[in-house]
Measured scan of single mutants.
Amino acid sequence: PTIVLKVSPEELKALEKAGVEIEKIEKNEDGELYITLTPEALKKAGFE
């Protein structure tokens, strides 16, 4: 199962800087950012 999270541009930068593997980055028509994370990326980021 993949996880989709709504993030701010600042959060996205912080995640990328931390080396979190982001599978997909999407922006909706309201300009909101959503990222898709794999279970492996979540484990690496410390989420179980």
Results as ranks from 00 to 15, higher is better:
residue 1 P to A: 15
residue 1 P to N: 11
residue 1 P to H: 09
residue 1 P to Q: 13
residue 1 P to K: 12
residue 1 P to V: 14
residue 1 P to G: 14
residue 1 P to Y: 13
residue 2 T to C: 10
residue 2 T to I: 14
residue 2 T to D: 09
residue 2 T to E: 07
residue 2 T to N: 13
residue 3 I to Q: 05
residue 3 I to A: 05
residue 3 I to R: 06
residue 3 I to W: 07
residue 4 V to G: 03
residue 4 V to P: 03
residue 5 L to K: 06
residue 5 L to V: 12
residue 5 L to C: 07
residue 5 L to R: 07
residue 5 L to G: 01
residue 6 K to Y: 07
residue 6 K to R: 13
residue 6 K to T: 05
residue 7 V to A: 03
residue 7 V to G: 01
residue 7 V to D: 00
residue 7 V to W: 01
residue 7 V to C: 02
residue 8 S to E: 05
residue 8 S to I: 03
residue 8 S to V: 04
residue 8 S to P: 02
residue 8 S to R: 05
residue 8 S to W: 04
residue 8 S to F: 05
residue 8 S to D: 04
residue 9 P to V: 11
residue 9 P to S: 11
residue 10 E to A: 11
residue 10 E to W: 12
residue 10 E to G: 10
residue 10 E to V: 09
residue 10 E to F: 09
residue 10 E to K: 09
residue 11 E to G: 09
residue 11 E to F: 15
residue 11 E to T: 15
residue 11 E to A: 12
residue 11 E to P: 00
residue 11 E to D: 09
residue 12 L to C: 02
residue 12 L to Q: 02
residue 12 L to I: 06
residue 12 L to N: 00
residue 13 K to G: 08
residue 13 K to F: 13
residue 13 K to S: 12
residue 13 K to W: 12
residue 13 K to N: 12
residue 14 A to W: 15
residue 14 A to D: 07
residue 15 L to Y: 10
residue 15 L to D: 00
residue 15 L to R: 00
residue 15 L to C: 03
residue 16 E to Y: 12
residue 16 E to L: 13
residue 16 E to D: 07
residue 16 E to W: 11
residue 16 E to G: 06
residue 16 E to F: 13
residue 17 K to W: 11
residue 17 K to Q: 13
residue 17 K to E: 11
residue 17 K to F: 10
residue 17 K to C: 06
residue 18 A to M: 13
residue 18 A to C: 07
residue 18 A to Y: 09
residue 18 A to V: 08
residue 19 G to S: 05
residue 19 G to Q: 05
residue 19 G to K: 06
residue 19 G to R: 06
residue 19 G to A: 06
residue 20 V to F: 02
residue 20 V to M: 03
residue 20 V to E: 00
residue 21 E to S: 05
residue 21 E to N: 04
residue 21 E to K: 04
residue 21 E to W: 04
residue 21 E to F: 06
residue 21 E to Y: 05
residue 21 E to M: 07
residue 22 I to D: 00
residue 22 I to L: 07
residue 22 I to Y: 12
residue 23 E to F: 08
residue 23 E to P: 03
residue 23 E to C: 04
residue 24 K to T: 07
residue 24 K to H: 09
residue 24 K to R: 11
residue 24 K to E: 06
residue 24 K to I: 07
residue 24 K to F: 10
residue 25 I to Q: 04
residue 25 I to R: 03
residue 25 I to H: 03
residue 25 I to S: 03
residue 25 I to V: 11
residue 25 I to F: 07
residue 25 I to A: 05
residue 26 E to I: 09
residue 26 E to A: 08
residue 26 E to D: 11
residue 26 E to F: 14
residue 27 K to H: 13
residue 27 K to S: 13
residue 27 K to V: 12
residue 27 K to T: 14
residue 28 N to C: 06
residue 28 N to L: 12
residue 28 N to K: 12
residue 28 N to Y: 09
residue 28 N to W: 08
residue 28 N to Q: 10
residue 28 N to T: 13
residue 29 E to I: 11
residue 29 E to P: 09
residue 29 E to A: 14
residue 29 E to N: 14
residue 29 E to G: 11
residue 30 D to H: 13
residue 30 D to G: 10
residue 30 D to L: 13
residue 30 D to R: 14
residue 30 D to Q: 14
residue 30 D to Y: 14
residue 31 G to R: 03
residue 31 G to L: 03
residue 31 G to M: 04
residue 31 G to D: 08
residue 32 E to H: 13
residue 32 E to P: 03
residue 32 E to K: 08
residue 32 E to N: 10
residue 32 E to A: 09
residue 33 L to N: 02
residue 33 L to R: 02
residue 34 Y to F: 12
residue 34 Y to N: 05
residue 34 Y to Q: 07
residue 34 Y to D: 02
residue 34 Y to M: 09
residue 34 Y to V: 08
residue 35 I to N: 00
residue 35 I to V: 11
residue 35 I to G: 00
residue 35 I to W: 00
residue 36 T to R: 05
residue 36 T to S: 09
residue 36 T to A: 03
residue 36 T to H: 11
residue 37 L to G: 01
residue 37 L to V: 15
residue 37 L to H: 00
residue 37 L to I: 13
residue 38 T to Y: 05
residue 38 T to V: 04
residue 38 T to W: 03
residue 38 T to F: 06
residue 38 T to D: 11
residue 38 T to N: 08
residue 39 P to C: 15
residue 39 P to G: 07
residue 39 P to W: 14
residue 39 P to I: 12
residue 39 P to Y: 15
residue 40 E to Y: 02
residue 40 E to A: 03
residue 40 E to R: 01
residue 41 A to G: 04
residue 41 A to R: 01
residue 41 A to Y: 02
residue 41 A to D: 07
residue 42 L to H: 05
residue 42 L to G: 02
residue 42 L to N: 02
residue 42 L to W: 14
residue 42 L to D: 02
residue 43 K to M: 09
residue 43 K to L: 12
residue 43 K to W: 05
residue 43 K to D: 15
residue 43 K to G: 07
residue 43 K to Q: 10
residue 44 K to Q: 15
residue 44 K to C: 03
residue 44 K to F: 14
residue 44 K to D: 15
residue 44 K to L: 15
residue 45 A to E: 04
residue 45 A to H: 04
residue 45 A to M: 05
residue 45 A to P: 10
residue 45 A to S: 08
residue 45 A to Y: 06
residue 45 A to F: 10
residue 45 A to I: 06
residue 46 G to T: 03
residue 46 G to H: 06
residue 46 G to N: 06
residue 46 G to S: 03
residue 46 G to Q: 10
residue 47 F to E: 05
residue 47 F to S: 03
residue 47 F to Y: 12
residue 47 F to G: 04
residue 48 E to W: 04
residue 48 E to H: 09
residue 48 E to G: 10
